[in-house]
């Protein structure tokens, strides 16, 4: 399979196998008009299998989403065919409207215009809690 080399764009590498489509959806990549390639189950010496996303344009990424879904990924920014920057997302301290509170007793169930805000309460265990009812966010699959 041949995917054209990127001249100006982004390569999201080291995505745990099977997470690429989730990232594709949450990052809104289906709304882009440029070429986007999703490579699934690529052989990796580090991970065994990994996914890769290639975007043929430099776009603004939601780093909070990247950090929450896959904090161990590598984001390569390509400019003029050269690797210009290599970044790793951080675990975000707060997430707004990325995950949604599932506690049926939470005020967000009745006040539907409220933003769903989660705070990182335990970085070691990667636990996020709703700022209103403190319900723990379910671990993403």
């Amino acid at each position: 399979m041949i995917i054209d080399a990127i001249r100006n764009g982004i390569v999201i590498d080291h995505i745990p196998a099977s997470l690429s489509m989730k990232l594709y959806r949450i990052l809104g990549l289906d709304d882009l008009s440029c070429s986007v390639a999703v490579l699934k189950n690529v052989a990796s010496s580090k991970l065994g299998r990994k996914d890769i996303i290639k975007i043929d344009e430099i776009i603004d990424l939601n780093w909070d989403v990247l950090g929450y879904i896959a904090p161990d990924i590598t984001v390569n920014i390509i400019r003029d065919g050269e690797l210009a920057e290599k970044r790793h997302p951080q675990l975000p301290t707060q997430l707004t409207n990325v995950i949604f509170c599932e506690n049926p007793r939470c005020i967000t169930t009745t006040e539907q215009e409220l933003p769903h805000i989660f705070k990182l309460t335990d970085p070691e265990q990667r636990i996020y809690r709703c700022i209103y009812c403190e319900a723990r966010a379910k671990k993403h699959e």
Binding site: R105, C106, I107, T109, I131, Y132, C133, E134, A135
Partner: peptide
């Protein structure tokens, strides 16, 4: 006091006076 968990927190983010939580559901 409000039956929904987190309602006083929402109130404290919007009110211009101090809010005291007098009980929010089982929270």
């Amino acid at each position: 006091r409000h039956p929904k968990e987190g309602a006083p927190k929402v109130a404290s983010m919007k009110a211009s006076v101090p809010i005291i939580n007098a009980g929010d559901g089982g929270h």
